[in-house]
Structure formats: C-alpha cells, structure tokens
C-alpha cells in the first residue's frame, strides 16, 4: 500500500500536534526554568514544519493522477499478501501465547506454517523446524539462561 505524500504528511502533522499538546501537560522541573517539556515541544515543531512541507509538496507538485492510496503489487497478489500477513500474525501469536504454550511448541509451529506456506517439502520442513527450535532452546534457553517460556512442557526437564 502506498499513500500519497500529502496523506503521509497529514498523518505526521497530526502526530506533531499530539506531541505538542501532550508536552503542554508536562509539569516543569522544580526549581529550574527548563524541564521535560521543552524538548518535546521542539521536536513537535520540527516534525510539524517538515510534515507541512511534505503536505504542500505532495499537493502542489506530485505527478498528476497520483492516487491518494495506491495498492502495491504485493498486496494485489494473494500469495505475497498472505505471506506478509502470516509473518505478522505469527509473531503476534508468539507474543500472546508464549507464556501459555511455551517456546518449543510455538517455535516449531511458526516455522512449520511458514515452511508449508512457502512450499518446502513437509518432511524436510519438519526436520529443519524441530532441529532449529531445539538448537535455539539449547543455546539461548539452556546455555545462555534466557528464560524462554516452557509453557505446556513445564516440568519435562
């Protein structure tokens, strides 16, 4: 998806306005004239100024006929669109489920889904997925003591 420059500019302008108004609510540093509110206001002004320039430039000088929203090729092709959404959804699923399900089952599932989707032969995919996840668990979880959640496998080792 590709938005028109003016649309991008407008979104960033809204962000700038938000930062500025938020900064007005920051209390000053006790006993000093310049506190935590000064810098956000400067950032908001800079962001706002350049987004105005982008809005103006897009509106005035964009090639005629540039649509407000152009659909990128990868969004039109159901396969690449699916790939994109899948990678995204799987990562979110990991964040939400890792404590309950645990790293090993979830990691294998994520790799398998992506492999199958990319038409990797499933037996080969399964071997690689299990090997990679077990290796990662061993390296990060056991050797480096990163507390990768064990989830449903809690108590097995």
């Amino acid at each position: 998806m590709r938005f028109h420059d003016s649309v991008c500019g407008a979104v960033l302008l809204a962000l700038a306005v938000f930062i500025f108004t938020y900064a007005l609510t920051i209390p000053p540093m006790p006993g000093q004239q310049y506190g935590a509110d000064v810098f956000p206001r400067m950032v908001a002004i800079g962001l706002g100024a350049f987004s105005l320039m982008l809005v103006f430039r897009g509106w005035k000088y964009s090639a005629p006929g540039t649509p407000w929203v152009a659909i990128a090729p990868w969004m039109r092709d159901p396969r690449t669109r699916g790939n994109f959404i899948l990678a995204f959804v799987l990562t979110i699923a990991y964040v939400l489920l890792d404590d309950i399900v645990g790293f090993i089952p979830l990691g294998i599932a994520i790799l398998m889904v992506l492999f199958v989707r990319q038409k990797v032969e499933w037996r080969k995919g399964a071997v690689i997925a299990v090997a990679m996840v077990v290796m990662t668990q061993f390296l990060f979880g056991n050797l480096l003591r990163v507390p990768l959640p064990r989830g449903i496998l809690t108590g097995f080792w």
Partner: peptide, 9 residues
C-alpha cells in the same frame, strides 16, 4: 551459531 553461543557462559 552453536559455537558462538556455546562459548558464552
């Protein structure tokens, strides 16, 4: 990778 990580601690 195994080697890199395994050497850590």
């Amino acid at each position: 990778l195994l080697g890199l990580v395994g050497l850590a601690s």
